[in-house]
Amino acid sequence: MDLRQLRQFVAVAEELHFGRAAKRLHMTQPPLTMAIRQLEETLGAELFARTRRSVVLNPAGEALLPQARRLLAEAEQLGPLVRSAAAGQLGQLRLGFVSTVGYGPLPGWLKRFRETHPGVALSLKEATLDVQLEAFAAGEIDAGFVLHAPGAAPTGFQALPVMREPLVLALAADHALTRRPRLPLRDALGEPLVIFPRAITPSLYDAVLSLYSSHQAVPQIAQEAIQMQTIVNLVSAGMGVAWVPESVTRLQRPGVAYRPLAASGLACETSLIWPLQHRPVVDRFIDHVSLHGGATDARQPFQPHATRGTR
């Protein structure tokens, strides 16, 4: 049994006349009659009650007709389905992201992507850079937003920088330094430091410690924490000060004050990264983020400058 036989059966079932069905199918009647006989032999049951004057469906034919129509309709959808998948309009996108981009443009990007790509199922995984790299290696995510020092996106991936922002100093709200109208950088460098482990973003960790080294200061690391929210909570508890991306200030954690220190020169960058070999749906998401853009800082529109290579 093949789709052609099903089409022939449906034509006869709807016309209830072999001559009209043959004309509809652009064929002669004898081959159509033979095809129906072959279909009946394949199925092991007659489908029509035939007389010299009439052709009607019998119970077996009535049972087959809706199923045949369904199969033919599904077959017609195969072409559009395959073309949509090939164009990246259909499928699943598994996306990793760091928490800081969640405080910024990510929710808006995801909302618009769902609206414009309803056939793509989004799967989100909040994870730091080191965890995302493991997920890439295991084939568990397709793309990810990662945090790093400016210009230091992970090697071995294509990358689209989406956000660049300064690091600001987080202090306990009742810290003595918050009462000073101007906070000297050297005083900030003398405070106990709450920082993320080097493993989760080596380039940014090294940039922070390089700042201390360049000012002949030795960082007093009081505590390490993985999540930015945890770091801010530790600062509010008086464990020390912390250098955090400016977007973290949107947390508005009670008991924490933020102070920009332009003299530090510290900044971070968020990039969307993806493997050289990837599925078309990843390209659609890259194009979407490029189109809607992020922001290099809170004041200037972002100009995409991806190092995407040939896709």
Rank of each mutant, 00 (worst) to 15 (best):
G294A: 09
A75F: 05
R37D: 11
L43C: 08
T128D: 07
G108K: 03
H292P: 01
K23E: 12
A137F: 00
E14F: 07
E191Q: 15
A143R: 05
R112D: 04
E74N: 09
W274C: 03
M239V: 05
P181Q: 12
P105C: 00
L133I: 10
G79E: 13
A173Q: 12
L234N: 15
P192A: 03
A137I: 01
D142T: 02
R112N: 04
V162P: 01
Q67N: 13
G151L: 01
G108Y: 08
G91I: 00
L251T: 03
V131E: 12
R284F: 00
L124V: 04
P150W: 02
P31F: 12
R198P: 00
R186I: 12
G102S: 10
G19A: 14
T230Y: 03
T201H: 14
A137K: 06
L124W: 08
R4D: 11
P219F: 04
T128P: 08
P59V: 07
R7E: 12
P219V: 09
L171P: 09
A170W: 12
D287S: 14
Q300R: 15
F196P: 04
P107W: 05
T296I: 13
R259Y: 07
D174M: 03
L276Y: 10
L291R: 15
P280W: 04
A170G: 05
L6C: 10
L177F: 12
R299M: 13
N233E: 15
R299I: 13
T296Y: 08
D283Q: 11
I141T: 01
L106R: 01
P80K: 03
V256T: 12
A298F: 15
K111S: 01
G119C: 06
E15V: 05
V101K: 07
P304H: 00
R182A: 00
R70D: 14
A176K: 06
I200N: 00
V248D: 02
E224W: 05
Q38P: 06
V281N: 00
S214L: 14
C268P: 01
Q300L: 12
